[in-house]
């Protein structure tokens, strides 16, 4: 389970990191890293201002 980040869309704002209920996301300078604790809950994808995240089941 994970999310895919479209790096060509992502504005590296970190909003997704703030809403992740399990802390699976991290904003490194200009990109988002997803670790293996991701539950594919989709909250990050829902709130992304530019729609850069897509949930992978």
């Amino acid at each position: 389970m994970s999310v895919n980040v479209n790096r060509y869309k992502c504005g590296y704002c970190g909003a997704c990191v703030g809403v992740c209920p399990v802390g699976a996301l991290e904003l490194v300078e200009t990109w988002i890293e997803v670790d293996n604790t991701c539950t594919s809950c989709g909250v990050c994808a829902k709130i992304c201002p530019v729609g850069a995240l897509v949930v992978v089941q």
Partner: peptide, 19 residues
């Protein structure tokens, strides 16, 4: 460390935001 804060979470404070 801003909206994407991790420091609180590491310290055991749940700062995660609901939609």
């Amino acid at each position: 460390d801003g909206v994407e804060s991790k420091v609180g979470r590491w310290g055991g404070i749940d700062t995660s935001l609901k939609p």
